[in-house]
Measured scan of single mutants.
Amino acid sequence: MAAAAAAGAGPEMVRGQVFDVGPRYTNLSYIGEGAYGMVCSAYDNVNKVRVAIKKISPFEHQTYCQRTLREIKILLRFRHENIIGINDIIRAPTIEQMKDVYIVQDLMETDLYKLLKTQHLSNDHICYFLYQILRGLKYIHSANVLHRDLKPSNLLLNTTCDLKICDFGLARVADPDHDHTGFLTEYVATRWYRAPEIMLNSKGYTKSIDIWSVGCILAEMLSNRPIFPGKHYLDQLNHILGILGSPSQEDLNCIINLKARNYLLSLPHKNKVPWNRLFPNADSKALDLLDKMLTFNPHKRIEVEQALAHPYLEQYYDPSDEPIAEAPFKFDMELDDLPKEKLKELIFEETARFQPGYRS
């Protein structure tokens, strides 16, 4: 834990890192770190609560700039109880001085990944967590956004079992017609939660990839272990087919990539493993919904509104309290091709509203 900075004593240090967030945020305490930044909790002297502050230093890398800009653009436009918001952003007053960006968010005690390492969940908890994931996802999908990296560590939890989806750095506007060349190379989302079509096709992607990830998360809540822990690309596919069985001819016809289709045709026939054999203690309604989410063919996979209306979630289902976005989200430009200098300018502009004396 960093010592509390005395008023006016300059930035606090946390594990050798400068955290320049005073005077409003003090009493910093280390939480963890990701690929390009550290997260601390801090005391907000204005709202009198502890908050989470993520320090991001992305400006050396085009990919990190892209992810940072995506996350900020999306989260500043989203407003939903099951999606983490941005409360404040701290950065230098000029673009030349801006080396880091500090993002202030609600402090959540833990995440689903940490929880599943230590606790076996009751059916009631599984049901409530799944409902909140789908409630947040309904809003995301209504904005025409794909999260693309749903996994237990991106689901934040607090002691009252509130759940918030975080990390929109890989999110995209849904565009089933656009052929994202190089899709697989830039697709760094965790393999275990990846839909089979991501490994088999490169053309376009749809909201059904997020539903697949939610199915993987439900299976993990039922058993405290990942359902498809593939060691590499082909191993991942083999794990999936080992449980779902061989795809039907109709399902194979959806695979545009001939090499991928021929690979699947070359494999020995596998039978589907019954879900109640894998999860003998699970609620039968939970397994019915799991089956509809972990469907090989993305066109037959359940959609988020149908999933919310499934009998497993009937005690929570309330369409009048499951809000959607006001308007579909649009990125003005494809960020993939922009140089990091341009992305830095866009991050600077996007964060201006939090600067003292800002006038829109």
Rank of each mutant, 00 (worst) to 15 (best):
N276Y: 14
S213M: 04
P247W: 07
I255P: 03
N201Q: 07
K55L: 10
Y205H: 06
C166T: 09
F78S: 13
F279D: 00
R194A: 09
H239K: 09
A3K: 08
L267G: 03
S223Y: 15
R91H: 12
N45W: 04
D337G: 00
I90W: 00
N238W: 11
E109D: 15
P58L: 10
P339I: 06
A309L: 06
K344M: 15
A282R: 09
R301E: 09
S29L: 13
H180W: 08
L338D: 05
K55W: 12
P268E: 11
A92D: 11
A195F: 05
F183Q: 08
R172H: 01
M38A: 13
T68A: 15
K151M: 14
D88E: 14
Y317A: 07
W212I: 13
D149C: 07
A3R: 14
T63W: 13
L252M: 14
V21I: 14
Q105P: 04
V101E: 15
Y43M: 07
C216H: 08
D321T: 02
L313Y: 02
P152D: 06
I256N: 14
G245N: 02
F78H: 10
A171L: 10
P356N: 05
G22D: 03
L265C: 07
H125G: 10
Y25A: 04
C216R: 10
P319M: 12
L346H: 11
S284R: 07
A174P: 04
G204R: 14
E81W: 06
N253V: 12
P328T: 15
T160H: 06
Y25T: 01
V173T: 07
N281R: 08
T351M: 01
Y263D: 01
R191Q: 15
L343V: 01
V104I: 13
I103M: 07
L218C: 11
N257M: 09
P152Q: 09
R353N: 04
E314P: 00
I165E: 08
H239F: 10
F331P: 00
I89R: 03
F354D: 14
M13F: 00
G16F: 03
M98L: 14
S248N: 03
S248Q: 07
C216Q: 12
A171D: 09
K342W: 02
C161V: 06
G37D: 08
C161W: 01
G230R: 00
L234Q: 14
P268M: 03
D321M: 08
T181G: 11
K259E: 04
L163T: 08
I84R: 01
P23V: 05
G204F: 08
I133S: 04
T181K: 06
N201G: 06
N271V: 06
I347T: 05
V51F: 12
G204W: 14
P23Q: 01
Q17I: 12
K259Q: 12
G16Q: 11
G242T: 01
A219E: 14
L146P: 05
R277L: 12
D288I: 06
Q105V: 04
L134N: 06
P58V: 03
G245H: 07
N276F: 05
D177Y: 14
P339H: 09
T190K: 08
H141S: 07
S320P: 05
L278R: 01
I198L: 11
L287P: 08
A35W: 05
I324K: 05
I31N: 14
L343I: 08
A92N: 00
E345W: 00
K114Y: 13
D318I: 04
L115M: 10
R79A: 07
V21L: 14
N238F: 09
A219K: 12
T63H: 09
S153F: 04
I86P: 00
E220C: 08
V304S: 05
I324E: 05
D167E: 09
T26G: 10
P226T: 14
G230S: 12
V173A: 12
T206E: 13
K342C: 03
H141N: 15
E350H: 01
L234G: 12
D100G: 00
P323N: 02
F296Y: 14
L121K: 09
F183P: 08
L69M: 15
W212C: 15
L222N: 07
L264R: 01
N271I: 15
I302D: 08
N123M: 06
N271Q: 09
A195V: 11
L222W: 04
T68N: 10
D124W: 00
K231D: 00
